Simulated scan of single mutants.
Amino acid sequence: MDISQAIAGKHLISFSYDGYNRTVEPHTYGIDGKGHRAVRAYQVGGGSSSGEYRGWKLFHVNDMRGLTVLAETFPHARPGYKRGDKAFSTIHAQL
C-alpha cells in the first residue's frame, strides 16, 4: 500500500523524520510549490524537533525513513483540513 492508498482508506502512516518517529493521519499527497513530493498530515503520535507533537505538518517524502502504512484507520478529516491545499502545485491524493 502506498501513500495515496493510505489516504483513500484513511490509514495512519508511521515513519522517522528529522530523527523522530512519527504517526500521522495523511490528508493530502502531491508536489509542493518547491517541487518536493510532500504529505500534509495531522501528527497524532511521536516526537518533533519543534516540540509540537500533535498538529498539522507538511512532510517531504524524500526525508521520510521507514514509511509504513498501518492497519489502524482514522474516522474523518481533522478540523482545519483544507481540500485543495494551496501549498501543493499538484495533488495526487486528498481526502
Score class of each variant (00 low, 15 high):
2 D>Q: 05
3 I>D: 04
4 S>V: 01
4 S>Y: 10
5 Q>H: 14
6 A>N: 02
6 A>T: 04
8 A>M: 01
8 A>T: 10
10 K>N: 14
13 I>L: 08
14 S>Y: 10
14 S>V: 02
15 F>G: 11
15 F>P: 12
15 F>S: 01
16 S>M: 05
16 S>P: 00
16 S>D: 15
17 Y>I: 09
18 D>S: 12
19 G>M: 09
19 G>H: 08
22 R>Y: 03
23 T>Q: 12
24 V>K: 03
25 E>M: 14
26 P>E: 12
27 H>D: 05
27 H>F: 06
28 T>V: 13
28 T>F: 03
29 Y>N: 07
32 D>I: 07
32 D>V: 06
34 K>D: 14
34 K>T: 05
35 G>E: 03
35 G>L: 03
37 R>V: 01
37 R>G: 00
37 R>N: 06
39 V>P: 04
40 R>P: 00
40 R>K: 11
41 A>V: 06
41 A>H: 02
43 Q>M: 07
43 Q>G: 05
43 Q>K: 01
46 G>Q: 06
46 G>T: 06
46 G>Y: 07
47 G>Y: 08
47 G>F: 11
47 G>P: 13
48 S>I: 06
48 S>N: 12
49 S>M: 09
49 S>W: 13
50 S>G: 02
51 G>W: 12
56 W>C: 09
56 W>I: 03
56 W>M: 09
58 L>R: 01
59 F>Y: 15
60 H>S: 06
60 H>K: 13
64 M>K: 03
66 G>T: 01
67 L>A: 11
69 V>W: 08
70 L>H: 11
71 A>C: 00
71 A>M: 02
72 E>F: 10
74 F>Q: 01
77 A>K: 11
79 P>M: 09
79 P>Y: 05
80 G>N: 09
81 Y>M: 02
81 Y>Q: 09
82 K>P: 00
85 D>Q: 03
86 K>R: 12
86 K>H: 14
87 A>I: 00
88 F>Q: 02
91 I>P: 03
91 I>Q: 00
95 L>R: 05
95 L>Q: 08
